[in-house]
Amino acid sequence: MKKAKVLIIDDEQELVTALTERLNLRGYDASGVVSLSEAINFIKQIPDVIILDIGLQDTDGLEVLKRIKEINPSIQVIMLSGYGDTERINKSLQSGAFDYLIKPVDIEDLVSKIDSAKLKKEESI
């Protein structure tokens, strides 16, 4: 199976670059952005999985999730959240997020969630 095309959206540049690099090292086609405007271009290229920070500074992560799902519902979104943000996690799951992870993430967990998200995306097509 071809490794997933992944987009990471988080406003922490440092985190985005580190995660992108780590995923690329594992053979994924990963790119990262820190703002929504940048993200739009990447979303048009239709990634398999988007990793989205729930607490984005310029926009609410939930809104972004909804817009992604509007643009292409087949894109699977994994939410990144801080501890104890259960309310927003639940909302995002209701709004169609594939799954969520609590920061800081364990890379192995992330990888396995990306893989199953890609599987789901392929099933849905």
Partner: peptide, 20 residues
């Protein structure tokens, strides 16, 4: 809660180094 962000960064950087 704010501490979590830099901690996440540390985590990813350390992870990346291990990956490297």
């Amino acid at each position: 809660h704010e501490i979590n962000n830099p901690l996440a960064i540390i985590n990813e950087k350390a992870g990346l180094m291990k990956d490297l």
